[in-house]
Design a binder for these strands. Structure first.
Ligand code: NAD
Ligand code: NAD
Lengths: 210, 210
DNA sequence: TTACTTTTGTGATATTATTCACAATATATA
DNA sequence: TATATATTGTGAATAATATCACAAAAGTAA
C-alpha cells in the first residue's frame, strides 16, 4: 500500500469537510463535492480512496457516515489519543487550552515545563516539572508530544522524550530536530510558513503588475 | 524559472541553518553541510540553488554571507514585512507577542477583533475594531494577514480582507478558505498536522512490533 | 424491462520532483 | 609549476505524484 504524507493530510481534510457537509444535512456525497470542498480534483479523491480500498457506489457516491468511519480507522482514531505538551509559554498554553482538538479525539493530558512558576499540579490538565515526564509518559502510555520550548532547548527535550517512549513529536521550535528510526518528528515552522507566503505574494504582485 | 512551494520552503530552511552555522563561526559552507542541516540530499541543495542561479565556487563551496543575502533577496526580504492579525484570542495573542518573527524581518503592526474588551488603541501593537481594518491596511500598505478567528468567522473575515488589498493570508482556522486569483491563502491546520503524526506513529508502532 | 445517465474505480499517461553521475574547475599540495 | 583532490553545476535518469479517460456498475425514467 503506497501512502505518502500529502495523501494522509488530504484524508484528514476530507474528513473535516465531511463533518461540515454532514452538518449541512448531506447523507451521501460524490467525489466531485469532496474535491470542491478540499480544492483538489475528483480523480485525486477517488485515487486516494482507492489506495485504502475505500469504495463507494457507482452512481450513488459515498455514504458520509461510512466514509468518516473508514477514514477515522485509517487515521488510527479509534481510540482517544493522549498527548503531552512540553513548554507552557505563550504558544504552549494557547495549544493546551484549545478545545478544538478534543472533537478530533485528541486530548492534551498534561504539560511540562522547567519554570517552577508554571507548575499546576492540581489542574485538570496539570503542568508538571519536566523531570516527571518520563515516568508520566510511561505510566500513561503516551506516544505523542508537542514541543513548544525555545529553539535552544528543543533538542535536549527530544533527548528526554525518546527514551521515555515518545514515538511522535510535533515541534514548533524553529529548528530541525533529530529523532531516530523509532520516532517520527514533524515540524511546524511558522517563520518558514510566513516567508513562503511572502514569496508567493511578491510573485503575485509582480506578475499582476501591482 | 520553475519554482514550487517545497523548494521555497527549503530555501527558508537553508537560510535558517546558515544563520546557525554562521553563529558557530563558519564562513564558507558546502552543499553537503547544508544538506545535513536541513536533512535533504546535497544534490537537492545544489539543484535548488541552480534554479535561482545561485552559484558557489567549485571546491570552495559557498560564502555564507553572500548566500544568506541571495536567499533573502529571492524570498523578498529586502524590506520589513508588515503583517496584521485578525482574531486576538489564545492563538492570536501568542503570535502577536511572539518576538521571533522580527529577526526574520516580519513585523506584526496591528491586530483586529470584534470583541470590544480586546481593543487596545494605545498599545505599541494596537488591537483595533475589525471595522477599521480596510482603512488601516490601505493606509499602511499591508499585504499580509494572519487569521486566528473561529472557523465560523474565517470566511467572512477573508471577504473583508480581500477588497482592502490583502494579497496573502496565513489561516489557522481549521477550514478551507476561498480566496481569489489576487490573493494567496495558505493554511496551517494543526488538527491535520496532529492527525498526520498520529497516523505515522501508528504505522511505526505496527511495523516495529510495538 | 430497456435505454439512458451518472459516477465510480483504476490502468495508462502526463507531470513534477528528486537523485545520479560526471565533466568542469577551483583550490591545495608538493 | 604540475598534479592531485574536492566540490560544483547540470543534463539525463529515475522516482513519485497527479491527471486522464473510459469501461463497468448502479441508479433513473419511461
Ligand atoms: N509564540 C508564538 O506565537 C510562536 C510562533 C512561532 C514559533 N514559536 C516557537 O515556539 C516555541 C515557544 O514559543 P513561546 O512564544 O511560547 O515561548 P515562551 O518563552 O513564551 O515559552 C517557552 C516555555 O518553555 C519553557 N521551557 C524553557 N526551556 C524548557 C525546557 N528545557 N523544558 C521544558 N520547558 C522549557 C519556559 O519555561 C517557557 O514556559 C519557541 O521555540 C518559538 O520559537 C512560537
Ligand atoms: N488556540 C489554539 O491553540 C489553536 C490551535 C489550532 C487551531 N486554532 C484555530 O485558531 C483560531 C483561533 O483559536 P483561539 O483558540 O485563539 O480562539 P479564541 O476563541 O481564543 O479567539 C478567537 C478570537 O477571535 C475573535 N473573533 C471572533 N469573530 C471575529 C471576527 N469576525 N472578526 C475578528 N475577530 C473575531 C474573538 O473575539 C476572539 O478574540 C480558531 O479557528 C481555532 O480553531 C487554535
Amino acid at each position: 500500500m503506497k501512502t505518502n504524507k500529502l495523501c494522509i493530510m488530504r484524508l484528514s481534510k476530507y474528513k473535516s469537510a465531511l463533518y461540515r457537509l454532514k452538518s449541512l444535512g448531506f447523507v451521501r456525497i460524490f467525489s466531485d463535492n469532496l474535491a470542491d470542498a478540499v480544492e483538489v480534483t475528483s480523480s485525486q479523491v477517488r485515487k486516494d480512496f482507492s489506495i485504502f480500498d475505500i469504495s463507494g457506489n457507482k452512481r450513488g457516491g459515498y455514504k458520509i457516515d461510512e466514509l468518516i468511519e473508514k477514514i477515522n480507522t485509517i487515521l488510527g482514531k479509534d481510540e482517544l489519543q493522549k498527548v503531552v505538551i512540553i513548554g507552557v509559554g505563550k504558544l504552549g498554553s494557547a495549544l493546551m487550552h484549545y478545545t478544538g482538538f478534543e472533537k478530533e479525539g485528541i486530548k492534551i493530558v498534561a504539560a511540562f515545563d522547567i519554570d517552577a512558576l508554571k507548575f499546576k499540579h492540581k489542574d485538570k490538565t496539570p503542568v508538571l516539572p519536566l523531570a516527571e515526564l518520563p515516568e508520566f509518559v510511561r505510566k500513561n502510555n503516551i506516544k505523542i508530544g508537542i514541543i513548544t520550548v525555545p529553539a535552544t532547548a528543543a533538542q535536549q527535550v527530544v533527548e528526554i522524550m525518546l527514551p521515555a517512549g515518545i514515538k511522535g513529536v510535533l515541534n514548533f521550535a524553529p529548528i530541525q530536530l533529530r529523532g531516530n528510526d523509532d520516532c517520527q518528528i514533524n515540524n511546524v515552522n511558522l517563520e518558514v510558513e510566513l516567508e513562503n507566503l511572502i514569496y508567493f505574494v511578491n510573485v503575485l504582485i509582480k506578475t499582476k503588475g501591482k
